[in-house]
Computed example of a mutant assay.
Amino acid sequence: MRTFAAAALTGVLVAVLPATAALAADPKPDIAVTSAADKANYAEGETFTITVTVQNKSSVDAKRVHYTGGDSEGVDGVTYGVLSTGFDLAAGATRTVQLTGKTNHVAWQTGRGYVAFALAADNGEANDADNDTIARLPVAGAFGDLGGYVYQGESFDAEWTPQTPGIPGVKVVVSSTDGKTTYADAVTDAKGLFRLAHLPAGDVVLTFTVPAGWKILAGENGEDDHTRTQISADDSDEPRVFVPAKKVAVGSPSPSPSASASSPSTPAPSPSSSAGPGLPITGDNTMLLVGAAAVAVAVGTVLVLAVRRRRVHLQA
């Protein structure tokens, strides 16, 4: 039986080891990429330069590293340079390359353009989590208006229709995405409608403060009181933000314990009124408990000895 088990184990090792050796002999490069624009802000039609830092974090050389899946908005004439033809990158090496382009009118309208892409090597990629990047190109100068509704709904995906009751008195605050700048605020009317004018084009955050008895259902799962949106310098003044809110119970304030204890009309009962004479609240309680425990141990010991003595007499 032992001989059979040993033979089986040997067979498994013979089958597995070549496959393991083959995997170890064919590792993949691990390409990581980051990017940064050369300016913090651009004008419409301005040329930009994006510096791309490429790192090979693996122990194997990367063959012909090149960009793939490029995407962009608000830019024209993007030139990827050496990222188009590709280049080899040794194991553990880092290289910086550049790409260029120009912002266009769409970038001015929306407050920003962007260039996004991923990198790949001809001999594979060990980790796809960090081989893509996006470079954002802020373009200031344009302004736009924003409007929306806060309406009644039982879930974050409740639909709005012109007949859906709105929630009045909701305060809406518009701020930058980093929270450092507040641009404007408004309050919803009887239909739940709010309007904000002359906001800078770009991404902003709307924060909602509802009257008591309501809960905002914003965010991806309806768990937030804020949502992110984009301001665009177009001619449309139609409401574009729709946020539901649901009714919630309003908790009544509980009386203060100190107030009820100090009320002259309802004096607190004395602890000794029903339980007999009370002990002073000092360390004496501890000593009493220790003494009671010692007595209990002594009594238990005497009972055990008595039982043993009786058992000895009976056996005799």
Rank of each mutant, 00 (worst) to 15 (best):
R2V: 11
T20G: 13
A25S: 15
K28T: 09
I31T: 05
V33M: 07
N56E: 08
D61E: 14
D61N: 14
K63M: 02
K63I: 14
T68D: 12
G69F: 08
G70A: 15
E73T: 09
V82C: 00
S84T: 14
G86E: 06
F87K: 09
A91I: 07
T100G: 05
G101C: 05
Q109I: 02
G111V: 07
R112Q: 14
V115T: 10
F117D: 02
A120H: 06
D122K: 13
A126E: 10
A142E: 09
F143E: 12
G148S: 08
Y151H: 06
Y151F: 15
Y151M: 05
S155A: 15
G169F: 08
V172G: 04
V172H: 04
V173Y: 03
T181W: 00
D185P: 01
A186I: 09
V187T: 15
K191T: 12
K191R: 14
G192N: 08
L193T: 01
L196T: 04
H198F: 07
A201I: 03
D203K: 15
T207W: 01
V210Q: 05
A218Y: 03
G219D: 03
E220A: 10
A233E: 02
D237E: 10
P239I: 04
A249C: 00
V250L: 14
S254A: 14
S256W: 03
P257D: 08
S258F: 10
A259S: 13
S270F: 01
P271N: 04
G278F: 00
L279D: 12
T282K: 06
M287G: 09
G291R: 13
A293K: 08
V302L: 15
R308L: 14
R309T: 11
H313R: 15
L314Y: 04
